[in-house]
Design a protein around this nucleic acid. Structure first.
Lengths: 310, 310
DNA sequence: TAATGCATTTTGATTGAATGAAAAGCAGGA
DNA sequence: TCCTGCTTTTCATTCAATCAAAATGCATTA
């Protein structure tokens, strides 16, 4: 098993997509939980949290060690090595080629460069990848409800959210589902669950107020989604929660066209509205929360609609 | 190209799943449209209807010819050869092995014989099929939202609709979504679309009234689904329609446990309620329709719930 | 007692050539 | 002009073998 010295890239050369994804989620978790330097990082704990075995978690932590975010204890185990409050996971982690392709496809579809109906054979040369990779990408899109198999040959992307119609429909749907979630008799504003959401919003507000940094559209999108999904999750109704999640997936497809970044004041306003809704919910004022939510959805819809109808 | 005489099963030996599926749908279409004997069957027309090319449609028609349902014209083309009003597609068509397995898996899952989390490697020996087949089945389940990939290894079936909780949640969700569909400002009761639904219901009522034949649970399920999905489709909102469809898929998983057939009077009552709702909708009395729908959903839910909670 | 580090087992991804099925094209005929 | 019946072309599945990665087990140590 002893081998040449020059060439031993055996492990860290290739990090699997799962490992990279885990590394990112772990980093976000560390950040959003506000851990202090020196905190011990437990592998079994993380493995339970993310529902995987210890192997990929260990590999993910190795990635973070390589980035200087974690460091070994003197004896054994890992600890947090530096403050991560103002760290953007994007910058740190290499983002697997598969993930890159996924976003590229999504963007090209949103821009109309990719037709609504595609065949695997058509995508292979286009992206210079094997059929297997194409399959995997399409399956991921399919799992998110963004693409469907056609009978016979080919795949078909979901109708995009362009045009007045689609916006109205999406708005109508979210209104129905999210309000139903609030009104659910089993609704329970679990602070445990909503705390990270609230914290993320406050972080955004802090950043905006300094005016120094722009918020990445992608980051805002994730936080926005976490708010709506978190709220729906409090309904204790898996179907309502799933519906909101899927709707967010669709919206992500649209956003990824990246026509323009949202103006900072728009983000700030949404943030405050979200926080107001959280306040109302946690105070048990459900009806007021619903009114605020309706208003919020309406405004967001009106803001988005005219811009898209190019 | 001339070959031995004894052995030429080349084509009809194997009918692809798509061909069988098409044959069934074509047969249902012929039946529900009430075609008369001698009516011409147009291949391009059917191909357009089902969104496939002419090849599989032709093959499907061959299957129907082999069953004596269609026959060639003297010159060319095909015609309807016999009355199909009281024909059960199940009896006629051979139902591909893949379809059989699909149902078997669904049933075993519903009965709890199959665990909620499974690995491909575990399913292969269990059903004596190759990995490819297992994949295909799981992908079909996944497309219907009945199963999800886990990160890492394995697949996880959707939480089943057993227990009080799940029934309440499903009921709550359907109430929210289907009523939102009715209330949609773009709601339009397209008679073209609802006519087949109405006809199917009337056919069921006719059968029930004679008392001779039992309604297959499967058949009633499909008609019930077509009612709710058809209604949602009238909202002109694809998201609402999709949500109803997916909910029906879930319910199908549950029903397939096949604990017991619904009693005929129960089916009859549901039928009448559906027809009353259709009447209200087509008369433009939306509010009344919504009230009826709420009542219908509540009753169906109450009927189903106690029986399942074994 | 529980987490670590490493070893082993299990699971699923990948590959390419052969096969089968669907899509697309075309000439003849209603 | 549209449909039929056939041919050609394109597309996707299959299968088995090899390989990468996740799950699991276990001795060790805090």
């Amino acid at each position: 098993m002893t081998e040449t010295i020059i060439d031993r890239p055996a492990r860290s050369e290739t990090a699997s997509p799962l490992q990279i994804d885990l590394a990112r989620r772990i980093l976000e978790r560390i950040r959003d939980s506000g851990w202090t330097v020196g905190t011990r990082v437990s592998v079994p704990d993380l493995a339970r949290t993310f529902g995987v075995s210890r192997s990929p978690v260990s590999a993910a932590l190795e990635l973070l060690v390589a980035q200087g975010i974690l460091s070994p204890f003197e004896t054994r185990g890992l600890q947090l090595a530096r403050d991560v409050a103002d760290l953007d996971p994007e910058d740190i982690l290499p983002s697997s080629p598969l993930e890159e392709l996924y976003r590229r496809m999504m963007r090209e579809r949103a821009l109309g460069q990719l037709p609504q109906e595609v065949s695997e054979a058509e995508l292979m040369p286009r992206y210079q990848v094997s059929r297997g990779v194409v399959r995997k990408l399409l399956l991921r899109f399919a799992a998110e409800g963004l693409v469907q198999r056609l009978p016979g040959h080919g795949w078909r992307f979901a109708d995009t959210l362009v045009g007045e119609d689609a916006y109205r429909e999406s708005y109508e749907f979210r209104m129905a589902v999210e309000c139903a979630a609030l009104r659910s008799p089993m609704f329970n504003a679990d602070p445990q669950q909503l705390a990270p959401v609230r914290r993320a919003h406050e972080r955004i507000l802090a950043i905006v107020s300094t005016g120094k940094t722009l918020i990445g559209g992608d980051e805002w999108f994730r936080i926005n989604a976490s708010f709506h999904e978190g709220l729906a999750a409090c309904s204790g109704n898996r179907f309502l929660a799933d519906a909101v999640r899927q709707q967010n997936n669709l919206r992500r497809l649209q956003e990824s066209a990246g026509f323009e970044e949202l103006p900072a004041e728009r983000i700030e306003q949404s943030c405050r509205e979200h926080l107001a809704i959280l306040d109302a919910v946690e105070a048990g004022e459900i009806e007021w929360a619903e009114a605020l939510l309706r208003q919020h959805l309406r405004q967001a819809s009106e803001f988005a609609s005219p811009q898209r109808s190019i």
